[in-house]
Design a protein around this nucleic acid. Structure first.
Ligand SMILES: [Mn+2]
Ligand SMILES: [Mn+2]
Ligand SMILES: [Mn+2]
Ligand SMILES: [Mn+2]
Lengths: 150, 150
DNA sequence: GTCCGAATATAGCCTATGCTACACATCCTG
DNA sequence: CAGGATGTGTAGCATAGGCTATATTCGGAC
């Protein structure tokens, strides 16, 4: 066998399987991102206005309404939402549960960012992306940190 | 005109244009994610082993080699990398610059996470996704926070 | 009750990211 | 220097997530 070189590394790299695993998990999180954001948004619309119309969802997501329709179709396909024609979108129990989890995470991320000195506006903006990559472990650490400095 | 209702909100929602803007920026970051990770990885491979072969990149990214080929093609298309047939991948000046920026951000994010109590392994895993959503403002706040607790 | 603007549905097109399968090139090893 | 293992290139397929354009349907103003 070719005796794998000890690698003349100037600076260390992560082990190959561990690194691949990290990238895979990040990809996974990325693909769940949209559903999470939609679920949270729809829950908020239902809570504040009574109904979630496709147009409103599209406007708030910043996409064309046809795009929102497709994503909502995916929500339905995955058992997170239902919709009656010309009647708006609703969340299933699973959808509400997801929305709650996502909202809690969103808030905690913003809180943490603000606590370490990020301006509120930037915290809100960055949190929208960051939240989808925060594991339970990290979430717990955030909570502990915020608790400790109260 | 129908006199838009003041919204009988039980809890406040962000203004519509601001929220759409946040989602758009998050989508933007998401689409840059792959290029950033590839650039960083290729730079690391070049630095530690002398060359970056497509297979190694694929293995470390945890994807099929054909997938890596396509992404590397995009890197080339965007002027970040070059490649000679059967010779491996190289970074242009722009590619190296991107890699450096990305690596610095990656490290700072891990440091911050660890500083607030996230276990190192989880910090490394989550950082791989989080890093792509950290704005300059947030990055500066992280640096300041870490500085302050030294 | 009619009519018109707004909301909704649907179709078609595009790119980005994955994958598998297969063909060809390279490079060790014996 | 022959052959097999490994690396590369490429084709074909699928899904996700964007878009525009076009047709319907709804619902409120008159
Ligand atoms: Mn989000
Ligand atoms: Mn959110
Ligand atoms: Mn990353
Ligand atoms: Mn990284």
């Amino acid at each position: 066998m070719p005796e794998k070189q000890p690698a003349p590394s100037s600076h260390d790299m992560p082990q190959e399987p561990a690194q691949a695993d990290r990238f895979c998990r990040a990809r996974q999180a990325r693909s769940a991102t949209l559903l999470e954001d939609y679920a949270e948004l729809i829950a908020d619309l239902l809570a504040s206005g009574g109904e979630a119309r496709t147009v409103d969802v599209a406007r708030r997501m910043g996409v064309a309404h046809a795009t929102a329709v497709k994503t909502i179709a995916r929500l339905k396909r995955e058992g997170l939402a239902t919709a009656l024609p010309y009647r708006g979108v609703f969340l299933t129990a699973a959808g509400h549960a997801l929305a709650d989890r996502v909202r809690a995470r969103h808030r905690l991320v913003v809180e943490l960012l603000v606590a370490v000195g990020v301006p509120v506006e930037d915290a809100e903006a960055d949190a929208e992306g960051i939240e989808h990559h925060v594991s339970d472990s990290t979430l717990a650490a955030f909570a502990g940190f915020l608790q400790g400095r109260k």
